[in-house]
């Protein structure tokens, strides 16, 4: 009997490895590897999920595990159902009592956003922690799949991930040979910030045939002066920011008529929630951004 179950487990592990590179099972447990390369195992599918960043919440819903989400943090506004879920404070300062009293069996933590001391405390209490931090398109797709694995909603998750990969590769194909557009993506207004080439937003820009003018900046999120932007003289300026009220960010560039982007009226707004959260909605953001850059090509 015992040998049999071990054999069974072995078969499962082997099968799991063949079936996908991240999901596997040890002694009947559900196991995945999270974004900190830690092995995360559950003995039964997650029933009560705490999502400790707005992005993690979105990924959990995308993975078909929305009904199991019992705790979110402030600004978890998508999908709209998430706003009805109990909040456990801001992602930088969690209401530990409320979180613990919700008795989650899976915590989707944000490695660089949540305080490590508080996450460590949760771990000491025996909670299962999965760190979510996708850095590229594949990371987003596989995050959906891995959360789906832990929540036993692989059917939904796989479909969403596949659609996402499909959409991204379609865009890639379409813009592979497109003429490059020197693009400045504005993350924030004051202080003026962009991102370097390792950031996934930069990869969205590249996907659309754009060239991130600050791709070689040494810091992930460089803080810039207006002069630096004028010196680079980008052909298109894309602004993100918070909410829809950042049209004035773009207005500011109209003060520089000699700037190529201003001259050709290539000042574009992309809703930040579609691009600044690493979730499947990035595909929607990417489509908008690609359209805008295509528009810029037409204005040459």
């Amino acid at each position: 009997m015992k040998t049999q179950s071990k054999l069974f487990a072995f078969t499962l592990v082997l099968g799991g490895c063949l079936w996908s590179s991240f999901a596997f099972s040890v002694d009947g447990e559900l196991c995945v590897v999270d974004d900190k390369q830690r092995q995360v195992c559950l003995s039964s599918p997650a029933q009560r999920i705490a999502a400790l960043s707005p992005g993690a919440t979105e990924l959990a819903y995308a993975a078909g595990a929305g009904d199991q989400v019992v705790a979110v943090v402030s600004y978890s506004d998508y999908p709209p159902e998430a706003k009805q879920v109990t909040s456990v404070g801001s992602h930088t300062r969690l209401d530990m009592e409320r979180l613990v009293s919700l008795q989650p069996d899976l915590v989707l933590a944000w490695g660089t956003g949540n305080p490590s001391e508080q996450v460590a405390t949760l771990e000491q209490m025996g909670m299962t922690i999965y760190f979510v931090e996708p850095h590229d398109f594949e990371g987003i797709a596989s995050s959906v799949e891995r959360i789906g694995e832990l929540a036993a909603s692989r059917d939904v998750a796989d479909r969403v991930a596949a659609e996402f990969r499909q959409g991204i590769s379609e865009l890639r194909e379409r813009y592979q040979g497109a003429e490059p557009i020197r693009t400045f993506y504005q993350v924030w207004d004051s202080p003026l910030m962009s991102m370097n080439g390792t950031h996934y937003i930069s990869k969205v820009v590249e996907l659309c045939g754009g060239v991130n003018v600050f791709a070689d900046a040494p810091r992930l999120i460089p803080r810039l002066s207006q002069e630096a932007v004028l010196l680079e003289n980008p052909e298109a300026i894309v602004a993100g920011g918070m909410g829809e009220e950042n049209a004035h960010w773009l207005e500011a560039w109209k003060a520089f008529p000699e700037l190529q982007a201003t001259k050709q009226n290539n000042l574009f707004f992309v809703p930040p929630s579609l691009i600044q959260r690493p979730t499947p909605r990035v595909l929607d953001g990417a489509r908008i951004l690609c359209d805008k850059l295509d528009l810029a090509r037409g204005r040459r």
Binding site: P115, E117, Q118, L220, I221
Partner: peptide
């Protein structure tokens, strides 16, 4: 604070404000 990468800011602000949420 100006030079720090954004993902390290929350942990830094804790030292500056004084916070028992992270007390060991």
């Amino acid at each position: 604070l100006a030079l720090a990468p954004p993902q390290k800011l929350p942990g830094m602000l804790y030292w500056l404000m004084g916070d028992l949420a992270y007390a060991g």
